[in-house]
Each structure stands twice: as structure tokens, then as C-alpha cells.
Design a protein around this nucleic acid. Structure first.
Length: 555
RNA sequence: UGGGGUGUCGCCAAGCGGCAAGGCACCGGGUUUUGAUCCCGGCAUUCGCAGGUUCGAAUCCUGCCACCCCAGCCA
């Protein structure tokens, strides 16, 4: 029997709306402001909005909420579009812009003015703040609150025509300065900003605020369920007030869900920007960043991110989600779909003394242990090989299942070998292991019955390729780097990046396409860097390690 | 000290008056040419706390407590 997929509160609401006939179809929207790069938190919102539309056979729009030209740019628009496409979602129709509704929004502002529901205020920002009251004290009416509709209309038109300076006047809704909800204390609808807009150029010098724009944008587009995060909950009465007082073509409703806060990271735009600008990371797409472009470069897959968003559910509760869940989703997808390969991160030379100098044997290994469709790869087997320095010890207890002097180990996809001798430099460091091949052990156990205890990866010293491997770890060493009194910069993990320039990989890996993911057996999942990798100079980023139940301390 | 929210296992999360799903993490055991995967088993007598209603409550009522959001001409 199938495990019943639990429904979340939004699905329940939509189901009811559909059943009751309140709406005929579901129309949602993902409305980013183009003022930064998308991060894992946006992935949740994208998943919720696109996912809901998809599961109910509806539509989801992509709309840039570009009402504040000062912070926005075309660069962000492009990165956001690329990220959403990468995640695999497809929006309905063309990309939309709040800015293309500016005239309609202005007409509606005029409507409010004519109805006596909005007025032009001459107060400065400081003066307005002083009269707004506090959380516990009511505000005081502006002295300009009772201007006539005619006077307000005249003033509004002059604001629009550019007659007034920035900050000298605003248009406000006439609601209630004593409301316990701060958003209802005569909120600002328009402010003067004499800066060019990335979409409308110099057409406008007044711009609508989020509150005056968002609900009406939803109304214009026929959005049925306008889904946002919890901090907008207090704005809903205002959202509804505009819909009530304006001749809008449609009445959308707003619903809120709890933001996603993964552990061991920060998602505030300001903090992410600081990490980039201060050089803590290499850019917005640094593999340690929680941005979609960062996760992409890290090797996280769209499927894994989508799966993660489904796993954590959608509720009205704010909480911290253990990144281990994201990492699980990544491993789950990669384990299933990534080809296998062998990579030696810390090379230790092994000379097989019974193999001739010019011996070259081409072994074959499966691309994936249980997926024939992923093909095979060729492994050159030669007299000199590299194994990982961690996989050899002169002596060890029985828990150590790798190569030990005088003992045997299986070379993955190849023969069993037995270590005979250790070569050290003058400082006493092990520089080479001399061993011999146990006969007839390709795909077979040793005929003498002495089975190797473990299996290790290896690469031909003469036919393998060197590669740069970047080992990434969590950027922060604290579960909640910016919670409470924490200064997130105090919790940066100093070991979040280690670069290995002389790793050895099997030849097939050098030919990998950029962004191809692999499991380097016994090491973890790695991705060919989308920018720096080339067959001539292989570069791999560590996506995530394998789950590891080996307790090193015990050995 | 105003208003709006949220409190179910370490984390996420079902549950909507009939006697606590599931996932992550963790801990055992089995299989294994990856100490991976896979498989099997364990993991809340209890649902923020205290009362009350009821044959019966995590689910209803009352009162507390904790945490989050709101005083941008940001979104």
C-alpha cells in the first residue's frame, strides 16, 4: 500500500476553494524583487508556489516585484530566471513585471484620492515617524490629512510630473492612525524617487510601495492564492483593504507559511552580500554559499533540492531545519544517479613487483553498481599505482579494513594485492609500498582461502590523470550562526575549503562534462566544476561526503 | 505595556474528540569487490504548562508560560 502523502494546510485550503467553487482554477505566482541572488529559502517558496499550481492543474506566474529601482538591476533578473529554469520549473506565459502595471496602479491611486481614501502628505520621513506612534501608543493624524480630493489630485499629479523633490511628499492611504496594526496607520502608497528604473527608464519619478502594489498585481494577474512568508501576515488587512476599496478585476487572497531556515548557514541578503564583498567566499556562486547558484556549483541537483523542499513540508511554524536533511536528499539523488569513479586524494605510490614494467591491462568496471544503463568504463592496470595514504598502515588492529604490511587488500574492480615492503625517505616518511598481486583474483577470491578484509580505490600512476579537487565543508561551524547574540562572522568554519592540486583520477574522469556528478568511491560525491573543469585540467568540487559509520578513533 | 502568530520525539512533520503516521538524525543486526547503497530491528504511556468539559482530549473551553513578527518614503 502506498504511503499516503500528508496534505499541508495550503493544499487543504485550495482543495476546499476548488470544491466550494470559490475558484475555478489555481493561479499562484513567485514574485521575487530583483535585488539579489536566489537562495535556498527562495527554493522553498518556488517549490510551494509552482508545486501547488502543478499539483492542482493550475498555473504559476513569474513576476518581478520591481517597485524599488534603487536596489534592483537587470543582472539580478537574469540570474533569477536562470536559477528558476535550472530548478526545472516553468512559469505560465511571459515573465511579468510589476513595473508594467505602473499606469494601472497610478490610476487606482487617483481613484482612492477621488474617493477621499488617500491624501498627499508633506511630512518628512522623520516627522511622519514621530506621528506614527509606537507599538503601544496610537499615532497622530498628519496636519495634511484632511486636504480635499481636488487638492490631493492636483498634488499627486504634480508629484508624478516631477515638480517635487525626493522625500518632500508622499501619497498615503487614509485609514486609521490609531490602529493597533502599524501597517494600517495611513500607509504610504507612493514615494518620489528620481532614479532611472531598469525596465521603465525615466518614465516615472514616483514609485508604488510594496503594500500598494502587491495585491493589485495579484488582482491584475488573476492570482487566486497569493502565498508569502509569515512576516507579511500583518500586511494582510491592508492587502484586503486595497482590494476592497479599488475596482479591481479579481479578488486574490493572501496566505502565509513559515520561512525555511537551514542550520549551519545564514540566508539574510545583507550577510550573504558581506561574505561575498569581504572575500570570505569567492562569489555568489561559491560552492559554500546557500544560493541556488552556489548549490549548483557545489553539485547539489535540482531534483535533490526539490525533494528536500517536499520533505520538510509547508506549515505556519518557523523553525530551523537540520541541513542533514538537505544533505540526505542530495546523497539520495546522487547515489541513485551519479556514475562511479576512482580518485586518490593523497597519493601513495604502490609498486607491484611481480608486474612487468611495460604491462598494461585494461580492466572494465561498471559505471554504477546497480544500473546497467550507466555503462562501463575502462581502467588501465599497470605496475605502478597510487592508493590513498590513509589506506595503508604498517600495522593496525582488526577494525582497519585496508592495506597493512604483510596483509592483503582488494583493489576495487581489480586484483587482490599483498604488501611486502615499505620504502621510507630519510625523514622516515612512507614514500612507497612494494607489493605483489595475488594470482587469479580478478573477480575471484584468492585460491588459498585467505580473503582480503577490505577494498580500496586506486589509479594507475602512468595512465591516471592529476586533478584539482576542492574539498568543501560547511561554511559555518555553528548550528545557528546568526541567532541571538551570535556574530555569524565569529562562527566561520576555517576548514570550509581545502584545495588539493595533485589528486589522481582514473582517465575516464578527465573527460567528464562540466557539471557532471560522480561518486568517487569511498570518498564522496564530486562534480566537475562548471567553470574551471576541462579535460586538460580536471577540476572537481566535493559535493558531499558519503555517509560514514566507520569510527576512526577505534582503530 | 498594543496587535498578529507559533508551541506534537534531538530536527522536520502527520493528526481536526476515540485511544501518538512518516522522514532526517541516532543506536543495534544482516548482505556487500564502496567502512556507501540495500535489508531488518530499536527510538514520544505522551502532545508548552495548569485547570475544566466529556464515557473518552494532542484534538473542545479557561488561564498561564515560552518563542517569532510589526513602529522603512525596503520587500
Amino acid at each position: 500500500m502506498e504511503t499516503a502523502t500528508p496534505t499541508n494546510f495550503l493544499q487543504n485550503i485550495i482543495r476546499q476553494d476548488l470544491d466550494s467553487g470559490r475558484v475555478r482554477e489555481v493561479v499562484t505566482r513567485f514574485p521575487p524583487e530583483p535585488n539579489g541572488y536566489l537562495h535556498v529559502g527562495h527554493a522553498k517558496s518556488i517549490s510551494v508556489n509552482f508545486g501547488l499550481a502543478e499539483s492542482f492543474g493550475g498555473r504559476c506566474n513569474l513576476r518581478f516585484d520591481d517597485t524599488n529601482p534603487e536596489k534592483e538591476s537587470q543582472e539580478y533578473i537574469e540570474s533569477i530566471i536562470a536559477d528558476i529554469e535550472w530548478l526545472g520549473y516553468r512559469w505560465d506565459g511571459e515573465v511579468r513585471y510589476a513595473s508594467s502595471y505602473f499606469q494601472q496602479l497610478y490610476d487606482w491611486a487617483v481613484h482612492l484620492v477621488k474617493e477621499g481614501n488617500a491624501y498627499v502628505d508633506d511630512l518628512s520621513a522623520d516627522e511622519a515617524r514621530a506621528l506614527r506612534g509606537t507599538l503601544t501608543e496610537p499615532g497622530v493624524n498628519s496636519p495634511h490629512r484632511e486636504r480635499s480630493p481636488a487638492e490631493n489630485l492636483d498634488l499627486l499629479e504634480r508629484m508624478k510630473s516631477g515638480e517635487f523633490d525626493e522625500g518632500s511628499r508622499v501619497l498615503r492611504a487614509k485609514i486609521d492612525m490609531a490602529s493597533p496594526n502599524m501597517n494600517m496607520r495611513d500607509p504610504i502608497l507612493y514615494r518620489i524617487r528620481k532614479v532611472p528604473h531598469h525596465q521603465t527608464g525615466d518614465d516615472w519619478v514616483i514609485y508604488p510601495t510594496y503594500d500598494f502594489a502587491h495585491g493589485q498585481e495579484d488582482a491584475i494577474e488573476g492570482i487566486t492564492h497569493s502565498i508569502c512568508t509569515l512576516e507579511f501576515e500583518d500586511h494582510r488587512p491592508l492587502y484586503d483593504w486595497f482590494i476592497e476599496h479599488l475596482p479591481v478585476p479579481h479578488k486574490p487572497r493572501q496566505y502565509e507559511f513559515g520561512r525555511l531556515n537551514p542550520s549551519y548557514t545564514v540566508t539574510s541578503k545583507r550577510k550573504l552580500r558581506h561574505l561575498v564583498e569581504s572575500g570570505v567566499v569567492s562569489g555568489w556562486d561559491d560552492p559554500r554559499m546557500p544560493t541556488l547558484s552556489g548549490m549548483r556549483r557545489r553539485g547539489y541537483t535540482p531534483a535533490a533540492i526539490r525533494r528536500f523542499c517536499e520533505m520538510i513540508g509547508t506549515t505556519r511554524k518557523d523553525g530551523v531545519v537540520d541541513v542533514a536533511m538537505l544533505e540526505f536528499a542530495v546523497r539520495e539523488d546522487l547515489n541513485e544517479n551519479a556514475r562511479r569513479g576512482m580518485c586518490v586524494l593523497d597519493p601513495l605510490r604502490v609498486v607491484l613487483t611481480d608486474v612487468p614494467e611495460d604491462h598494461l591491462e585494461t580492466l572494465s568496471a561498471p559505471g554504477h553498481p546497480n544500473r546497467d544503463d550507466l555503462g562501463e568504463r575502462e581502467l588501465p592496470f599497470t605496475r605502478e599505482l597510487y592508493i590513498d595514504a590513509d589506506d595503508f598502515r604498517e600495522e593496525a588492529n582488526k577494525k582497519y579494513k585496508r592495506l597493512v604490511l604483510g596483509k592483503r587488500v582488494r583493489l576495487r574492480n581489480a586484483y587482490v594485492i599483498e604488501a611486502d615492503e615499505v620504502v621510507k625517505d630519510t625523514a622516515g616518511n612512507i614514500v612507497e609500498v612494494r607489493a605483489h598481486v595475488v594470482p587469479n583474483t580478478l573477480g575471484e577470491n584468492p585460491e588459498d582461502g585467505v580473503k582480503p578484509k577490505g577494498v580500496i580505490q586506486w589509479v594507475s600512476a602512468s595512465h591516471g590523470r592529476t586533478a584539482q579537487v576542492r574539498l568543501y565543508d560547511r561554511l559555518f561551524s555553528h548550528e545557528a550562526p546568526d541567532k541571538g547574540d551570535n556574530d555569524y562572522l565569529d562562527h566561520l568554519n576555517p576548514e570550509s575549503l581545502a584545495v588539493i592540486d595533485n589528486a589522481w583520477v582514473e582517465p575516464a574522469l578527465a573527460a567528464a562534462a562540466p557539471e557532471a556528478s560522480f561518486q568517487f568511491e569511498r570518498e564522496g560525491y564530486f562534480v566537475a566544476d562548471r567553470h574551471d573543469h576541462s579535460p586538460e585540467r580536471p577540476v572537481f568540487n566535493k559535493t558531499i561526503g558519503l555517509r560514514d559509520s566507520w569510527n576512526e578513533g577505534a582503530a
